[in-house]
Amino acid sequence: MCYLMYQTGKDQIKLAKGQNFFICNFSGHCGSGMKIAITAT
C-alpha cells in the first residue's frame, strides 16, 4: 500500500487496476466522509 500527498491542484494520478482509495489528511475530515474509493478496470 502506498501513501502519497498531492497538493498542487494539477496532480495526475495513474490508477492501479482494482480499488484505489483517497482520503483527506485534515484532522476530522476523513471521519466526516472526506474519502473516496475508485475501482479501475
Rank of each mutant, 00 (worst) to 15 (best):
Met1Val: 02
Met1Leu: 08
Met1Gly: 01
Cys2Lys: 12
Cys2Asp: 05
Cys2Met: 10
Tyr3Asp: 03
Tyr3Met: 07
Tyr3Ala: 06
Tyr3Trp: 00
Leu4Tyr: 15
Leu4Ala: 15
Met5Glu: 07
Met5Gly: 10
Met5Tyr: 12
Tyr6Ile: 11
Tyr6Ala: 12
Gln7Ile: 12
Gln7Met: 12
Thr8Arg: 14
Thr8Val: 13
Gly9Val: 07
Lys10Gln: 14
Lys10Asp: 08
Asp11Glu: 14
Asp11Gln: 04
Gln12Asn: 10
Gln12Val: 14
Ile13Arg: 02
Ile13Lys: 11
Ile13Phe: 15
Ile13Cys: 01
Lys14His: 02
Leu15Ser: 03
Leu15Glu: 11
Leu15Arg: 08
Ala16His: 10
Ala16Leu: 13
Ala16Tyr: 01
Ala16Phe: 03
Lys17Ser: 09
Lys17Gln: 07
Gly18Leu: 11
Gly18Ser: 10
Gly18Arg: 03
Gly18Asp: 12
Gly18Ala: 13
Gly18Met: 04
Gln19His: 10
Gln19Glu: 15
Gln19Lys: 15
Gln19Ile: 13
Gln19Thr: 15
Asn20Cys: 06
Asn20Gln: 04
Asn20Gly: 12
Phe21Gln: 01
Phe22Leu: 07
Phe22Val: 09
Phe22Thr: 08
Ile23Val: 15
Ile23Met: 13
Ile23Ser: 10
Ile23Ala: 10
Cys24Met: 05
Cys24Asn: 14
Asn25Gly: 11
Asn25Trp: 02
Asn25Asp: 07
Phe26Asp: 15
Phe26Glu: 15
Ser27Cys: 03
Ser27Ile: 13
Gly28Asp: 15
Gly28Val: 11
Gly28Cys: 11
His29Met: 04
His29Gln: 01
Cys30Ile: 14
Cys30Leu: 15
Gly31Ala: 13
Gly31Cys: 06
Gly31Gln: 09
Gly31Trp: 02
Gly31Met: 09
Ser32Pro: 09
Gly33Gln: 02
Gly33Val: 04
Gly33Leu: 03
Met34Phe: 14
Met34Lys: 05
Lys35Arg: 14
Lys35Phe: 10
Lys35Val: 08
Lys35Thr: 04
Ile36Ser: 05
Ile36Asp: 01
Ala37Gln: 02
Ala37Lys: 00
Ala37Ile: 02
Ala37Arg: 00
Ile38Pro: 00
Ile38Met: 02
Ile38Gly: 01
Ile38Lys: 05
Ile38Ser: 01
Ile38Arg: 02
Ile38Gln: 09
Ile38Ala: 00
Thr39Lys: 12
Thr39Glu: 04
Thr39Phe: 01
Ala40Val: 04
Ala40Arg: 09
Thr41Phe: 00
Thr41Cys: 00
Thr41Val: 05
Thr41Asn: 05
Thr41Glu: 06
